[in-house]
Design a protein around this nucleic acid. Sequence first.
RNA 1: GGCCCGUUCGUCUAGGGGUUAGGACGCUGCUCUUUCAAGGCGGAAACACGGGUUCAAUUCCCGUACGGGCUACCA
Length: 517
Amino acid sequence: MTRPVRVRFAPSPTGPLHIGGVRTALYNYLFARKHGGTFLLRVEDTDQGRYVPGAEAYITESLRWCGLEPDEGPEQGGPFAPYRQSERRTVYEAHAQELVRRGAAYHAFDTPVSLEARRLEAEQAGTAFRYDAQTRMGLENSLTLPAGEVARRLAAGEPAVIRLKVPAGETVAVEDLVRGQVVFNTDELDDKVLLKADGMPTYHLANIVDDHLMEITHVIRGEEWLPSTGHHVLLYQAFGWEATMPRFAHLPLILKPDGKGKLSKRDGARFGIPVFPLAWDGESPEDSFRGFREYGFLPSAVLNFLAFLGWNPGTDQELFSLPELAAAFSLDKISKGGARFDYDKAKWFNQQYLHAMEPALLATWVRPWVRAVGYEVSDSRLQEICRLMKDRLSLLSDLPEQAAYLLGPVRAVDAVQVRKRWDPTSRALVEALAGVLSDVAVFDAAGLEEQVKSFAAERGIKIGQLMPLLRLALAGTMQGPMVFDMMQVLGREAVRTRLHEACEHFDRLVASPPEAV
RNA sequence: GGCCCGUUCGUCUAGGGGUUAGGACGCUGCUCUUUCAAGGCGGAAACACGGGUUCAAUUCCCGUACGGGCUACCA
């Protein structure tokens, strides 16, 4: 009785999609691809109080950026539409009623206020209040009220919820694909609200009903759901759906960089790291964030990094494309312990992808950043710059800064280095070289190198003496690509003018007193 | 507090009754080199603790400690 694999990613549009959510989506996607199954997106927007406009669009856009397009979902439709829970409320209501009819659920009239009072009371007595088999007979519900009274209240439209009637003294076991058998004693499980007073289902009801109706075969979700899985199994049993109950796989949590708790949106600001895939413009600055994209990450690198947070293929290979991940993926390789978010490792993955990228492709990725700081350079020139800078980048956003002197004029000069290396003889030397260089037939790196070397040889100076001067004159800094490569990219004219301007500038600089630090 | 889950270098992890406990990030040394990177070659660095079981436990079992999650008419 093996059914075609169907998995779902079921986020709640209460804000931007957290990076842990992206990982959950990724694992679901990989599992679906691995088994030739279907990956669907279901939007769990049953809490109108926490609904945030724009969040669903954000989720969709994030998945698209990552390349994790759902096979079915609100946008792409599918045989089980609608895929937005707010559009399915009659389905849940009917199912909740069905449970009442079966005696597996009941109506409850207790108000949130009265329940809160009970909780407070219990807390002061040093215990915890729980709406369960022990307490429900002392509360206001269809189990304790006369049938006529219940009917009257319901007919009068009195606020009421439907609760699951958890059986006492039983044991529920789940065979989790990641953790093995997990057992719950029903005496520890409360009578969860299934249908809220506003007619909307809670997660527990909606989730089980939809997973069943949408023929979900595997539920791959975060570990925070493990404690309520007992309820979920009870629900499948109450509906008589045990035979097609999905298998569960609970993923380890992604922890804060310091390991103290699960990663949350506030950690972005706290640790100076991205925790969202894309930027999010909230209502306030504190609620607005830059994402991995805005930090300069490639989606493929983010995915690769995320895949390895809680999973590994069991080999030494670390760099995987999305199809490769899908081929290698398996649930039994998922680790059990929480994984700390390691920003250095994330950057390393990005760096690896940047290194492996063709300059022409890199140029298209880097273009927006270049434009953002006001540089306009031709495609061919940008590609050349990318070729030289590729190995020095770990983020796309590094390029405009590190290659500033190739994209535009030299803006910053390392005065300390100039003072150290520029002496009274330097000017004559550099100007003489500039003269030689302007006569070079073909202005490319190889030819230039030859010219400069013979120039140095003729003058009897060491190349190591000359190069730093050229580098400083051309770039203003001691860091960067090979000088001859820079020259080629800069071109004959720019090299000539930079050399001459630097002579003026450096002479003056060296003559002036160093600033007190 | 109760319930559930977890624990191999600082971090992500491989491994599994007998191993020099492997890899990666980070750190670090050397090398390459006109600089900075990248690359190459090295180095330091781990089985939480206590009991069992066993000829043998880091590996299996039980405790303890520590960490995490859940404990809403939120998901």
